[in-house]
Amino acid sequence: MNDHATDTDNDLPPFKPTGAIVLWLVLLVLLGITWASAYVDLGMWNPVVNIGVAVLKAVLIMWFFMHLNESGSNTRIMAIGAFFWLAILITITLTDYQTRPDHSAYTEASAADDAAGRRATDADREAVDGAGEEPSGMGVPLLRGQ
């Protein structure tokens, strides 16, 4: 292909597609691995493979396609920082929910409801909660006391 409307620079880099294509093939192989693993029962290793492959794909995309390999340290700190804040958000939130011992009244109530094949009403929840000390808002009561 001959492009006439280029600038006059003589030191332009040539168009090199090889690296990107190789990376794309690697990413497709990784996708194939996760897809195939969905049909194999690996027990607790299924989620490990799925999330591990996702992290690997994300790192490859950011390192090569998003040019972190040729970026200065300032840019890299911005990228790492974003994931660092996200890690704080997820870790501390899950620490809270994972360390509460008793299961909520909601869970019991809804299990009974599910067994009966109907939806829990607010009255049911209040009956199990006992007196219903707070109004049930969207979502919030679902996680109470997990």
Binding site: D3, T6, D7, L12, P14, F15
Partner: peptide, 9 residues
């Protein structure tokens, strides 16, 4: 890559 190489089309 194409933009780097000034390949407009």
């Amino acid at each position: 890559e194409a933009a780097r190489a000034h390949r407009r089309r």
